[in-house]
Design a protein around this nucleic acid. Structure first.
Lengths: 243, 243
DNA sequence: CGTGCTGTTGAGAAGACTCAAACAGGGTGG
DNA sequence: CCACCCTGTTTGAGTCTTCTCAACAGCACG
């Protein structure tokens, strides 16, 4: 990891994700606050390779984190090595909204692909909060989105079969991607290994492989070359049992 | 349901739960704010019988809710009738911390026992927030606790066997109860039916019955007369695989 | 050309589910 | 006081889903 405070704001201003809720509020805030003479929120960058753990459970941090580039996952680790992914982190998402308010998480975060991320000083954030209701609103929104995603995954793990889980996972990732990008004929980026999918869906890699094979044979979707193409959206939604 | 704004504050002042994070902040706030001449946060009471749905998914509400008496559950309902409990709500807990910020939830809430609850005006809350950093802190805390509970349940559903799930569920309920009450030899209140447990743990009632039987036969715990007694804490923790 | 990682396939076992029936307890009405 | 009903729990038998273990193929990399 390395950081580069001086150029952080400049980089964000030209970032394609500057419309994501928290990023937008931070940027607006840093311009509007100059007029209010409040200190700006200090930021710096970090990066990591695929598979690196970038935040360790219960590690106290001065900063909150926002993912800029790549995919990451927040996960819980069991004493015996089992691992459950709690949330999938895509560019523009905070590692967890909790880190905006609280110095540590009870879960860890690891990079699934090479990543770059933004560190945001929590104490600066706290000060800025007093002067900027819009920023507070943005943090609430991020927090709500995170909780809603948890609820959705909770329903999947508690009630759905493996086929439903994977269909829903894919559709949800597609929705999240589509909310920020145009989805082309050729599909969208999908860098997850079967192991990563298994960690999210609470299945084994072997079973993930089998289920994805049935999807492939049924002409529902195809994963290749790090991209996922949905060939039969209707069919996939039918399998996912989502209204 | 009925409400009684006039006596709400008086009732809260003498409530045994007035130390729970949000309740405490609201009460402190209503006294400290009088000196700051900010309007108090209006509250009223509601109540319901066991099995009643007390908040419907996506219903817009002017108020946030805090459970005073009884047990409730927030749950997601599938189009085909399947149901997953997302969080167990005990006295002192908000239905969801999200309702402090946002007018609606994507999940419903139902009473598991007869309940009484407090309605807190969100707009009043919002105004009070500006004047009271402690209140903001309390809402963050409630939100964090809710997310942490989600994470824990997520790990259970994704990675644990039925025995582990039930052992963990029981231990977690015990911890929550113990944090606010003294746990006696005779155990603690446990009004859940097997169906309620199944909804939380993502199992069927039949299987819950079987697993609880093995716990009983192994001398780990006993449920009877609406109370749960842990007979072998060490053994139960071993089954739960929590370090 | 070996080595390690990822994905695929097969066979068998274990866990949890479904369906069905019986049982226990509390409340109600005769 | 008893018969009945309703709800919730228990038990049995059989099935299906998912896991485990093991082997192998493909590919990237040194």
């Amino acid at each position: 990891m390395h950081s580069d405070p001086a150029t952080a704001n400049a980089a964000c201003t030209s970032c394609a994700l500057r419309d994501s809720p928290v990023c937008a509020a931070l940027l607006n805030q840093s311009t509007s606050l100059q007029t209010r003479k409040a200190p700006p929120v200090r930021r710096s960058f970090g990066g990591a390779d695929a598979r690196e753990t970038i935040y360790f459970q219960d590690e106290a941090s001065e900063d909150a984190f926002i993912l800029c580039v790549g995919w990451a996952a927040r996960f819980a680790q069991f004493p015996d090595g089992r691992r459950q992914t709690l949330s999938l982190i895509l560019p523009g998402d905070p590692f967890s909204a909790r880190l905006f308010f609280t110095p540590a998480l009870h879960s860890s975060v690891r990079a699934l692909t090479p990543v770059r991320f933004n560190r945001v000083s929590r104490s600066d954030l706290k000060q800025a909060l007093a002067a900027s209701p819009e920023l507070l609103e943005a943090l609430f929104k991020a927090s709500t989105m995170e909780s809603d995603a948890s609820d959705a995954l909770l329903s999947d793990l508690g009630q759905c079969t493996s086929e439903e889980r994977l269909a829903r996972l894919v559709l949800r990732i597609r929705d999240r991607y589509a909310s920020r990008h145009v989805v082309r004929e050729s599909g969208f980026p999908f860098p997850l290994r079967h192991q990563d999918i298994a960690d999210i869906a609470g299945l084994t890699t072997v079973h993930v492989s089998r289920v994805l094979k049935t999807f492939r044979l049924a002409g529902l979707m195809e994963i290749s070359g790090g991209a996922l193409t949905i060939k039969d959206m209707k069919g996939l939604e039918r399998v996912a049992h989502r209204k």
